[in-house]
Nucleic acid binder design. Structure first.
Length: 818
RNA sequence: GCCGGAGUGGCGGAAUUGGUAUACGCGCGCGACUCAAAAUCGCGUCUCGCAAGGGAUGAGAGUUCAAGUCUCUCCUCCGGCACCA
């Protein structure tokens, strides 16, 4: 073939590899170590976009590199096939969600095939396949047995017009995205998973994972463990107590009011005492119109005082007002806070707005490891009451660290802030508690297209699991998808009949389906044994592949999917179902590919890049390689697609193609060894961009000579093969090789040829580069320094001045300090 | 608002992890080939300056012989915030 005809080559090899089952993966190969590379399986949207290429084709480069290094590499693909879009298609177009989904998958399978990735399609999984969700249901039952599942009430967005629950993203400015009706907050009972039971382990076990610190940190913050105190405030005149949660019990003396979340139960039980009932009711009604996010985002604090109600500060017996405000969330802590406006910014804003008392706590003599901030001069200053002087004397510094040590207090010498908080908590009869921002996971959805929750209700309404022998508990098909406020499954006669037939008259099926995050919490196990009808995955296959060596995915999954699946594995581990309690040894987040204009690709912005068109025009090898060339992989940086840039990569491949004509006698090049080494190292860190740059440097050198050696050219092809698997295979076989280039071994380099004969040492005078000197790698430090000081270009800069110091950085520079 | 991340030429980025800032690619300019154009190839391309030399990594400070890299303050952009996946 004279010219590089990507179309012919790519089709030919994709067919050939398929025929030869080149990418079939066995659970074990003698003498080879297994390596499990995972990428997040995809929702079958029906059209592969550039983002999919970035997510799947670039990790394929890495998987191929590992395979050439002698690993038995698993790089599987599947479909996260349950979800809203299929249901919306059913509502809008009258489509059958199942048919619709499978059609999309067929289309995507073809498109995925055009990548030339090493997916083993025999291991493909589809989460909406009954053979898959059977195991999702089976695990649900196991969790239920172990009390990891329970029923509870949570608040959801409700559109009264469409009669459906809305995702936060479907609520725009408090209105339903579809019909514009005012969205309400509504309480709904649902099935919950006790993820909070694992909160401590989910935080603590992060320490043993080789994950980037920013991901760990995001997870820690999401879980939001804080150690604090629960302290009771009595309500004056009646037998009612308000329990508040605070992390700063040491500021108790500075409390000037108490705030309840609008949903707090005391709001109701204090009804008789409240003098401004109407006003309070109005406020609560208004709150229901706001989503939680709105409540946290709003800069303007709102609230209403419960007039006629006074709480009593347990530290000094002071009577303080009680407020209701929506900046306090019902789901966190106890849903009530003690406000210390002098030492908390939000409380301060609130106090200022409603003209509440601000009271500074007496400053202690503390030794803090951080800088000490003065509370400032504004506001009212009051001395602490005599009664609790000794308790509040310590640790009232608002910004002191948890590990600050109090040194100057006679009574509490060497007491840390944390200890001080414990002491004061006890003194007022409170208790020290741990609390989490993380909430239990509500998995119920009033949707059709999801895994049916395998529960049935007896005539008394008591819930029972569907026994394992009846799994998969099939999704019925006789369903009307029009939203009418009930779950679509409630309208299935087949489901009801089935339930009655198995369990008896009067029994009713659960009509909810599961959150799709459940499906994706364990999918990586199913790849290992995708066709097993006896187990979710055999012990043998799990032991062969788990834990996953590398999990590449989107940064948007950092807190939710990644935490849900970590919880899932931990729960499975405790049930004795799997060996490991963490599934992902290494996790890397990737960024996004933006449109050429630097914006997120979207139809409305008219900046969508169609990969199919570019593959047709320039080839899959070019697209794969360009995506790898844009920037380092595995960091959350977004790169805009540059239509010119992709042509540059195509040019590179054409130059490599043409180089075959230069094969001849030539001279061996030491550059090849350097390049091979650098590329091998870069690939290990997912720096595919600089690896490619090295190949470009190499062929720039080869362009300058008349002939190159065949063996050296072949090494280039091997290094290039993970990036451009089709073209390199064609060239490799044409050079007479019998076996696929992808079965060949990653090239080695000669370390002796990597070392330079001479080193260029930079000479700086007072930090400015003034000269360069050449030395051999084993020139002694003293000699290099002497050479630097004597250098012609250096002398004018140091003449007549005193040389104070001379610093030598081996192999790099000499720094002369005057 | 809270949490996480990123700011380096006209553009994507590189920088041996504290040691010559701008590798490689794109774009642009000039030239070769051509009747011409495309493609291809060669040379040039941070900035001020004739030069010697000076300045520049979002802004400002600090540590250091030496800072894109470390510390602090601020600005801008991106991702997530629990029923999109």
């Amino acid at each position: 073939m004279k010219n590089y005809d990507h179309k012919k080559i790519e089709q030919k090899w994709q067919k050939e590899w398929d025929k030869k089952k080149l990418y079939r993966v066995e659970d074990s190969i003698k003498g080879k170590e297994n390596f499990y590379t995972l990428v997040e399986f995809t929702y079958p949207s029906g059209n592969l976009h550039v983002g999919h290429w970035y997510a799947f084709a670039v990790p394929d480069i890495y998987a191929r590199y590992k395979r050439m290094q002698g690993y038995n590499v698993l790089y599987p693909m599947g479909f996260d096939a349950f979800g809203l879009p299929a249901e919306n298609a059913a509502i809008k177009l009258g489509a059958d969600p199942k048919e619709w989904t499978y059609k999309q998958m067929d289309k995507m399978r073809t498109q995925l095939g055009s990548m030339g990735a090493m997916f083993d399609w025999e291991r493909e999984i589809v989460s909406c396949d009954p053979e898959y969700y059977k195991w999702t249901q089976w695990m649900f039952n196991k969790f239920l047995e172990k009390d990891l599942v329970y029923r509870d009430v949570t608040s959801v967005n409700w559109c009264p017009n469409d009669k459906t629950v809305l995702a936060n993203e479907q609520v725009v400015d408090g209105a339903c995205e579809r019909c514009g009706a005012q969205v309400e907050q509504r309480n709904q009972e649902q099935w919950m998973l006790r993820i909070t039971k694992y909160a401590d382990r989910l935080i603590d076990d992060l320490d043993k994972l080789a994950w980037p610190e920013e991901i760990k940190s995001a997870q820690r913050n999401w879980i939001g463990r804080s150690e604090g105190s629960e302290i009771e405030f009595k309500v004056k005149g009646i037998d009612e107590k308000i329990k508040v949660f605070t992390t700063r019990a040491d500021t108790l003396f500075g409390v000037t009011y108490v705030v309840l979340a609008p949903e707090h139960e005391s709001v109701e039980s204090l009804e008789l005492q409240v003098e401004n009932k109407k006003e309070v009711e109005q406020y609560i009604t208004n709150t229901k119109k706001k989503s939680e996010l709105d409540r946290q985002q709003s800069k303007e604090k709102t609230g209403v005082e419960l007039k006629g109600v006074k709480a009593i500060n347990p530290s000094n017996g002071e009577e303080i007002p009680v407020w209701v405000a929506d900046y306090v969330l019902a789901g966190y802590g106890t849903g009530a806070v003690m406000a210390v406006p002098a030492h908390d910014e939000r409380d301060f804003e609130f106090a200022k707005k409603f003209d509440l008392k601000i009271k500074y706590v007496n400053r202690p003599n503390v030794f803090s490891t951080s800088r000490i901030n003065s509370p400032g001069n504004s506001g009212i200053y009051e001395s602490p009451s005599k009664k609790l002087d000794e308790i509040i004397e310590f640790c009232t510094e608002p910004l002191c660290d948890d590990d600050a040590v109090l040194v100057n207090s006679d009574l509490y010498n060497n007491l840390s802030c944390v200890e001080a908080r414990q002491k004061i908590t006890k003194a007022v009869g409170g208790r020290v508690v741990k609390t989490y921002r993380l909430r239990d996971w509500g998995i119920s959805r009033q949707r059709y297209w999801g895994t049916p929750i395998p529960i049935v209700y007896d005539p008394e309404g008591k819930a029972h699991p569907v026994p394992d022998e009846y799994l998969p508990w099939l999704l019925p098909t006789d369903v009307d998808h029009t939203p009418d406020g009930t779950s679509p499954l409630a309208r299935s006669k087949e489901l009801l009949k089935r339930t009655e037939k198995i369990f008896g008259k009067g029994w009713k099926p659960e009509v909810e389906t599961m959150d799709t995050f459940v499906d994706s919490s364990w999918y990586f196990y199913r790849y290992l044994d995708a066709k097993n009808s006896e187990e979710f995955a055999s012990k043998k296959s799990r032991e062969a592949w788990m834990p996953i060596n590398l999990y590449m995915g989107g940064a948007e999954h950092t807190t939710m999917h990644l935490l849900y699946s970590r919880f899932w594995v931990k729960a499975m581990h405790h049930l004795g179902l799997v060996n490991e309690d963490e599934a992902y040894t290494v996790r890397r987040n990737r960024g996004l590919i933006l449109g050429p204009d630097g914006n997120k690709m979207s139809k409305s912005k008219n900046n969508v890049v169609d990969p199919d068109e570019i593959v047709e025009r320039l080839g899959a090898d070019t697209v794969r390689m360009y995506l790898a060339f844009m920037g380092p992989y595995g960091v959350t940086v977004n790169y805009p697609w540059d239509p010119n840039g992709v042509v540059g990569v195509r040019r590179f491949l054409e130059r490599v193609w043409k180089l075959k004509e230069k094969i001849g006698k030539g001279n061996a090049t030491t550059l090849l060894h350097k390049v091979t080494k650098k590329i091998t190292e870069d690939m290990a860190e997912y720096k595919f961009n600089t690896a490619i740059a090295q190949m470009m440097i190499l062929i720039n050198e080869w362009d300058k000579v008349d002939e190159i050696l065949e063996d050296e050219y072949k090494i280039l092809l091997q290094i290039l093969s993970p990036f451009a698997p089709h073209m390199t295979e064609e060239l490799w076989i044409n050079l007479g090789e019998k076996e696929s280039i992808h079965l060949s071994e990653w090239p080695k380099w000669d370390e002796r040829k990597v070392i330079d004969e001479f080193l260029k040492i930079v000479v700086q005078v007072n930090g400015k580069v003034r000269a360069e000197i050449m030395v051999t790698p084993n020139t002694e430090e003293e000699e290099v320094k002497t050479l630097a000081l004597k250098d012609k270009a250096v002398i004018p800069w140091i003449e007549g001045k005193e040389v104070k110091r001379v610093i030598y950085v081996k192999g790099r520079l000499v720094s002369i300090v005057l």
